[in-house]
């Protein structure tokens, strides 16, 4: 992915949920582009539609309107099999609640997406260890998630997101469950992914920990997007 080309291109992107109380728009008419290697903050208050937008970008959910192309994949028209392949190879997800598999060790958690993608464990293991080493977790490789601190869990999640070498990293409130020191460390690692490793990083947050690390900031309010300063009220 060369720097300067759009990795994410959303045009009039819409996701409407049908509920008993009527239709609810999680994202409504969002149009934006994100270039390769950019670190972008997606800011908005709770319930503003950040997670919905991230779900769409990660191929976890499908748009009900508009166009969404991520790393060349048309997510509006992708089949379930296409979306599964997309999640394996194109995006790496970092969740607010870490979402590590509790029965697997740190190393196994990191290797998991690569195994799901069909890579052989002997090939994956050194790669995983390299990521853990970079994140300062190599000494925790054999530990179960319940034995880790919050910061360590989130760094494990970052290693897991990187294992298949995806061009896009999506982080949903990655510092939301962490103290400020751990949160800052996690934010720094995510920013470094864009700055030094050329990944496109989109961080959804309503905090300020990563403000100074971002190339640009997108705001979302009531499902509608804007660029620049955000009103988080």
């Amino acid at each position: 992915m060369s720097s300067g080309s759009a990795v994410v291109a959303a045009t009039d992107l819409t996701r409407v949920y049908h509920t008993r109380g009527g239709d609810v728009a999680g994202v409504h008419g969002a149009t934006f582009r994100i270039m390769a290697g950019q670190v972008v903050l997606l800011k908005g208050a709770s319930g503003s539609g950040k997670s919905t937008l991230l779900s769409l970008l990660a191929g976890l959910d499908t748009p009900t309107g508009g166009e969404l192309i991520v790393a060349g994949c048309d997510l509006r028209r992708a089949s379930q099999a296409d979306l599964t392949h997309f999640r394996r190879r194109t995006v790496g997800m970092v969740f607010q609640s870490f979402n590590l598999m509790p029965t697997m060790t740190v190393l196994e958690n990191v290797c998991l997406p690569a195994l799901l993608a069909g890579d052989a464990l002997p090939v994956v293991r050194p790669r995983a260890m390299a990521h853990l080493d970079w994140l300062g977790l190599s000494h925790r490789a054999a530990h179960l998630p319940e034995e880790l601190s919050g910061g360590e869990m989130q760094r494990t999640a970052i290693a897991r997101a990187l294992i298949n070498d995806p061009p896009v990293i999506l982080a949903d409130e990655p510092t939301g469950n962490l103290d400020s020191v751990s949160g800052q460390a996690v934010a720094d690692y995510l920013a470094e992914l864009g700055r030094h490793f050329g990944r496109t990083v989109l961080i959804a947050t309503h905090g300020a920990l990563a403000d100074h690390l971002a190339d640009r900031t997108l705001c979302i309010k009531d499902g509608q997007m804007s660029e620049g300063a955000c009103d988080l009220s």
Binding site: Q80, R87, M93, F95, P113
Partner: peptide, 16 residues
């Protein structure tokens, strides 16, 4: 369920 959803988000297909 949450773990299953995570597995799916990491690239596991419904068949897996």
């Amino acid at each position: 369920r949450k773990e299953l959803a995570v597995l799916r988000s990491l690239g596991a297909g419904p068949g897996t």
